[in-house]
Amino acid sequence: MTRVISILFWLSLAAVLAFITLPLLVVVAASFSPTATVTFQPFEWTFRWYGDLLSNRWLDPFLTSLKIATVVAATSGVLGLLAAYCIVYERLPGSDVLMSYLLSPLSVPQIVKGVAIVLFLSMIGFQGFLGTPALIAAHVVLALPFVTRMVATSLANFDANLDRAAQILGAGKLQRIRHVLLPMIKPGVLSGVTFAFIISFNNIPLSVFLVRPGDSTLPITVINYLEYSLDPVMAAVNVASMAFILVVIFLFEKIGGFSAQIHGGSK
C-alpha cells in the first residue's frame, strides 16, 4: 500500500516538474534555432541570437531592470524588516491592523494598481515621476507584503529565550538585535529580498503603465518587441533572463547560507 502511494507520489511529482520545465525547454531549444523563424531542429543550432543580446536594444532595458530591481530589493528588504520587527517582535499597539494594511495591496489587481498610480501622479502633477522613480515606488508596494510576510514568519519562529539568554549575558537591545536576532532571521530576510528582486525584475502588469518610452524595463521591451515579431532573439532574451534570475537566487543562497543557517551550520 505504502509502495503504491509512494509510486503515485513520484509519478505526480514528475508530472508537475515536466509541466513546469517542458515549455521552458522548448524556449531554450528555440533560442538556438538556426533559422529566423522559431523552429525546432535538434541537430542544427547556433549562438547567433545570443550575440544580438549584446546590442543596446537589449542591454539598456536589462540595465534599467537590474537597477530598479536592486533598489526595490534593498528598499523593500529594509522596510519589510522594520515593519515585521515592529509588528511581530515589539508588538506595537495596532500591530494587527498594521499587518492587514501592509498585506492589503495583495488583494488589488496589478492592472488596477497601475492605472491608479498613473492617475494619482497626474492628479498631483507629478507626471515627471513616470519612468524609473514611479517603477521603483510601485514595485516596492508590490513586493513589500511578500517581504514583510516572510520576515514576519521567521521572526515568529525566533525563540524569545535566545533573546533573554543574550540579555542576561549583558547584551543591550542593539547588541541583541545585531548579534542574535538578525543572524537568526537572516535566511527569512534574504529570501524576502530575493523574492522582491524577482518580482520587480519580471514585472509586466504594473510596469506597463509606468515605463517611459526610451527608458523601458526588460519585460516591457520584450512585450513591445513581441507585437511585431516572434523570432529566436525573443527566446534568447528569455533564456538569458531566466539564467540571470537563477544566478541571483544562487548568489543570495550563497551569502545567506540558507540551509546552513537554518540548521545552525558551519560558516
Binding site: Q167, I168, G170, M184, G264
Partner: peptide, 27 residues
C-alpha cells in the same frame, strides 16, 4: 537584566544556534 550581572541556565539551554561553542561561551 543585562546590567544585573546574574547568570541564567535555561531549561531548554537556549544556545545560540548560529555560533560555535566557543562563540557561545565567549558571548
Amino acid at each position: 537584566p543585562e546590567r544585573r550581572n546574574i547568570g541564567l541556565v535555561f531549561q531548554n539551554y537556549a544556545l545560540f544556534p548560529h555560533m560555535t561553542v566557543n562563540e557561545n561561551v565567549a558571548f
